[in-house]
Design a protein around this nucleic acid. Structure first.
Length: 846
RNA sequence: AGGCGCGUAGCUCAGGGGGAGAGCGCUACCCUGACACGGUAGAGGUCGUUGGUUCAAAUCCAAUCGCGCCUACCA
């Protein structure tokens, strides 16, 4: 009713991410908002507001009340939409349809009439869940069970002569005044030979029969069951099969009826106390024990529901459900992740008829009329003028309205112009995907499946992606009054919408519920900030006329030899990120897409690439190579923005407009992989060269850190390697290492004397000596080396154990064995080098 | 009562048969001309417990304990 809760936010964000992503892949995307304000919730809100102004719904009458709800909706209906817009929802607001609008109402009536004519809708007396406060029937799905500490009362129903009798146990003694029988199990020996086949119903002094039915559980209590057909669905079934009368003792208002005799007018709770007191006085209360059991509550108003006998409209869902089951079984609709299929099947197989009538005023009024003259039932789309049977004109319309989910079930086609065969309907039925929480699976998804298949002859959607639910600490539905709940609007105010959306995406791992963590949101705000600053830096260096950065100019149309190693490397990494992101989103792995982008942007683009290219960018001489780097910088930034855009639409849109060479909205930009101007880079040599360079830089930095040398102090480094390829790579990138590791001098040779006072690090084939003449702390260095040796020893232990195992060598795949052997060799070599260095250091120390 | 899911670093969580990961927090050193909402480096985990399958188990299977959710007519 107008407040965006975090579940909505998650739902909306994931849908929006998918829509924006698929749009960037060139898909024809229609994302339609479904705002539904029919039903009890809206009625209750408006009723409450009117009551505060001193107006009673019943006094104003149905027509005026419905008018008041329309006005309320006019006034507040847009609230949640505005909040969704703030969240960045890019759905097609122009197409917003409200289930109560005229076109959709016609669809609802048509569906109702057709189902009625097919015999799939019927009217009958049955026990339904009744909410005394909302004063209407509600469906099983609207009932929430809550564990309650109650009591189990054991009551003796004596034989007519006042002796003995049968003891029954109940949690609801007030219903006993409506009992019409006592049931025992036919094989229960305790009751095989009774002096009488009837007992006296205490307090009411009514003689009721003892019936025998295998439904009764002999092991529970004394094995006697009181039968209250009007207030318990199972008892009702018993009553039908044993021809027992039903006596409705609790009224629709939750108060005892005239049938309850002297208890008439009492509230059901008051009545319980009175009945218990009276039973005690009569000496018929055998025992009271504490008993914990679950009680159904209305999920709208949290009032304990009352199973109540009443005349309602039902849909026979079995035939509809069979087709909906088959559609999932044969893969016409896929449910993702698959584990939810079981839940869908379980429910569909055990489905009961659906009570669709509601005794409220706000909703689609059931299109049924009764002829007062001949009692003929007329079900029609348009209001009939006379009775087709007797031509009588005194027709009374059914006052009940339809369950909200009845109209919602038609959403996939009723919103597209059905029953007309519109182009919209042809294009977007079936839709590709429905994204929703599992709580909606039964209440809505299953119903859309049934109705869609029945009326369209085809499933409403190809895929249903079920995402996790956001929970509060108690695992209950979030509500503002609890206080331990984060309000999405507040989070967005504090951390920004992009950070919030990124967090939701990062948390949306399949198969687990989400507990909102503000710390995480804060972390992603830092990420968004990082992107902003990195872009600011890049934009400083991107000239206005640089068309190649984005758009028509294409992907780095520069001579390959002008590209630096970091340029080639970042382009290769971009391509891999592009693949990870698209694969992740294609499989609804939002968290994987988010973390791939996070890792790439922060740790590769910012930490390595931007730092690596600074010397070139600041080089006043500039030249072709600088221009090439600028083009790569612009291009990669452009691709980052496009890939990140589905998750963080606001900042990427803003940066997009600042990027030279861009036109229009980033929403219209093609995903890099689908951009014809993109040149794919599978550049294995760039990656392996860069790995070596980064490894050496990290090795030097490690020594700097461990030896506590200030970053401002320039180091002298000597590298030795017997491997020519290694030496060549290092020679080629001397300047890069210089800059990134902050060196004053760097030499590279195949072998030679070990420097006297140096700290050592080994990466791959290279031994790195950081010369610390006069500065080196030998004990510190030997400690550092020992620690390193320790790590290697542990790794070596595991590897050696495997290689000593003949079964491993025999049975493990060759590639695995080979890998382990290589690793073992590398470790041994490293160990040996470290050992000799350690020996030297120790010697110096001594 | 059944079904499903979860127990991995101090916290929030990824991963899911062959190298234990991220973010936050923590420690040390740095305000270097995009960014201190920052940089560099570091510490920290017998992946709930017990068995089993396997050459190999955090990962698969079984049992068990703890937690959560969904379903159910046990009065």
């Amino acid at each position: 009713t107008g407040v965006l809760h975090i579940g909505h936010a998650l739902d909306c964000t994931l849908q929006d991410i998918l829509s924006r992503y698929r749009r960037s892949r060139g898909d024809n995307v229609l994302w339609m908002p479904g705002t539904d304000h029919a039903g009890i919730a809206t009625q209750n809100v408006v009723e409450r507001e009117l009551a505060e102004q001193g107006t009673d719904r019943h006094e104003m009458g149905r027509e005026k009340f419905v008018e008041a709800v329309w006005q309320w909706r006019e006034k507040y209906g847009g609230a949640i939409i505005n909040q969704l817009k703030r969240l960045g929802s890019s759905c097609d607001w122009q197409r917003e349809r409200f289930t109560m609008d005229e076109g959709l109402s016609r669809a609802v009536r048509k569906v109702f009439v057709q189902l009625y004519e097919e015999g799939l809708i019927y009217r009958g007396n049955y026990i339904v869940n009744w909410c005394p406060r909302c004063h209407t029937a509600i469906s099983d799905l609207e009932v929430e069970h809550e564990e309650v500490d109650g009591h189990l009362w054991h009551i003796r129903y004596p034989f007519p002569d006042g002796t003995g009798g049968i003891v029954v146990a109940t949690t609801r003694p007030e219903t006993m005044v409506g009992d019409t029988a006592v049931a025992v199990h036919p094989e229960d020996e305790r009751y095989a030979h009774l002096p009488s086949e009837t007992v006296m119903l205490p307090l009411m002094n009514r003689e009721i029969p003892i019936i025998r039915d295998s439904y009764v559980d002999m092991t529970f209590g004394s094995g006697g069951l009181k039968v209250t057909p009007a207030h318990d669905p199972n008892d009702f079934d018993l009553a039908v099969s044993h021809n027992l009368p039903s006596i409705k003792v609790i009224g629709d208002d939750g108060k005892m009826t005239a049938e309850a005799g002297k208890y008439e007018g009492l509230d059901r709770d008051e009545c319980r106390e009175a009945v218990v007191a009276d039973l005690e006085a009569a000496g018929l209360l055998e025992k009271v024990e504490p008993y914990r059991h679950s009680v159904g509550h209305c999920y709208r108003c949290n009032t304990a529901i009352e199973p109540n006998l009443s005349l309602q409209w039902f849909v026979s869902v079995k035939p509809l459900a069979e087709k909906a089951i088959a559609a999932v079984e044969n893969g016409e609709t896929r449910i993702i992740p698959k584990m939810w299929e079981k839940s869908y099947f379980d429910w569909m197989h055990n489905i009961r008829d659906w009570c669709i009538s509601r005794q409220i005023w706000w909703g689609h009024q059931i299109p049924a009329w009764t002829c007062e003259d001949c009692q003929e039932m007329i079900v029609a789309i348009e209001t009939p003028e006379k009775c087709p049977a007797c031509q009588g004109k005194r027709l009374i319309r059914e006052t009940d309205v339809l369950d909200t989910w009845f109209s919602s079930a038609l959403w996939p086609f009723s919103t597209m112009g059905w029953p007309d065969s519109t182009p919209l309907l042809k294009t977007f039925y079936p839709t590709s995907v429905l994204v929703t929480g599992f709580d909606i699976l039964r209440i809505w998804v299953a119903k859309m499946m049934m109705m869609g298949i029945h009326f369209m002859g085809e499933v409403p959607f190809r895929e249903v992606y079920i995402h996790a639910l956001v929970q509060d600490e108690e695992g209950k539905k979030m509500s503002k009054s609890k206080g331990n709940v984060s309000d999405p609007l507040e989070i967005m105010d504090t951390y920004g919408t992009d950070a919030f959306r990124f967090t939701l995406a990062a948390f949306a791992a399949q198969g687990r519920d989400i507990k909102m963590s503000e710390k995480r949101v804060e972390g992603y705000r830092h990420f968004v900030n990082k992107l902003w600053n990195a872009s600011r830096f890049a934009l400083m260096h991107l000239p206005e006329g640089l068309e190649t950065a984005a758009g028509e100019g294409g992907d780095t149309p520069i001579v390959e030899t002008d590209l630096s190693l970091p340029d080639r490397w970042i382009l290769a990494r971009r391509d891999q990120t592009m693949d990870s992101v698209s694969q992740a989103l294609d499989e609804y792995r939002f968290n994987e897409a988010a973390s791939a982008l996070y890792q790439f942007v922060w740790h590769e683009f910012c930490d390595w690439y931007l730092e690596a290219i600074k010397p070139r960018l600041y080089d006043e001489a500039g030249g072709k190579k600088q221009a090439a780097t600028k083009q790569v910088l612009g291009r990669v930034l452009r691709d980052i923005l496009v890939m990140l855009h589905p998750i963080t639409p606001f900042i990427t849109e803003e940066l997009w407009h600042r990027l030279p060479g861009t036109t229009g909205s980033i929403m219209k930009a093609a995903f890099p992989a689908d951009d014809p101007s993109l040149i794919r880079r599978t550049d294995a040599s760039a990656e392996s060269e860069m790995d070596l360079v980064m490894g050496i830089i990290t090795g030097i930095r490690n020594i700097r850190g461990e030896m506590n040398i200030a970053p401002s102090e320039l180091l002298t480094v000597a590298i030795q390697s017997k491997d020519k390829i290694t030496r060549d790579i290092i020679k080629r990138h001397l300047m890069l290492i210089h800059h990134m590791a902050k060196l004053s001098a760097l030499t590279i040779e195949s072998s030679g004397a070990r420097p006297k006072a140096a700290a050592t690090s080994i990466f791959d084939q290279a031994t790195i000596f950081v010369l610390l003449e006069g500065v080196v702390d030998f004990s510190r260095e030997s400690l550092r080396l020992e620690k390193e040796m320790g790590k290697i020893a542990t790794e070596l232990f595991g590897v050696t154990k495997k290689l000593n195992n003949s079964d491993f060598l025999k049975k493990a795949p060759e590639a695995v064995v080979e890998k382990v052997k290589e690793k073992s060799a590398a470790l041994l070599e490293k160990q040996e080098k470290l050992q000799s260095n350690l020996d030297r250091i120790r010697a110096m120390e001594g």
